[in-house]
């Protein structure tokens, strides 16, 4: 699971309203360089929830991202490199995603988040 996906996942345990953002607890991560694609980055940026992304990036050790959504003049190549790295080059292999409302812990195993609910957790 990369932060791209973390930014999309919400907990839908019975009783949650937003279930987002999920707190990220990282046990094992893997870093791997991937192809830099500015078009993709600029397309994805406005679709992200920035504060959720930034908080998750911090838990992966990336601390060079601006605290607020980047202004037009901040969209430098240097920014895009850091953004690319945080968004696509770090994979959480093992860890947990934690529902901000219920505390339900969703495991990430072998890079795949398990968001399945038990029968008594479904509306």
């Amino acid at each position: 699971m990369r932060l791209l996906t973390h930014n999309l996942l919400a907990s839908n345990v019975k009783g949650t309203t937003a279930g987002f953002p999920l707190k990220l607890e990282v046990l094992v991560k893997e870093e791997r360089s991937t192809e830099f694609d500015a078009a993709f980055l600029l397309h994805t940026l406005p679709k992200l929830n920035w504060s959720a992304f930034r908080a998750a990036a911090e838990s992966l050790g990336v601390d060079k991202l601006p605290s607020t959504y980047p202004e037009r003049d901040e969209l430098t190549n240097e920014f895009l490199r850091v953004f690319h790295h945080a968004l696509l080059e770090i994979e959480v292999q093992e860890g947990y995603l934690i529902c901000p409302e219920t505390g339900r812990r969703f495991p990430v195993r072998k890079g795949i988040p398990n968001m399945m609910l038990n029968e008594d957790e479904v509306d």
Binding site: M1, R2, L4, T5, N7, L8, L9, A10, S11, N12, A18, G19, F20, T34, N49, L88, E89, E91, G111, I112, P113, N114, M115, M116, L117
Partner: peptide
Amino acid sequence: ERVELTRGDLLGPLRER
């Protein structure tokens, strides 16, 4: 990173976002 996988029921955890 081009196809990310999630274990879930239908659109479940992706639906809202």
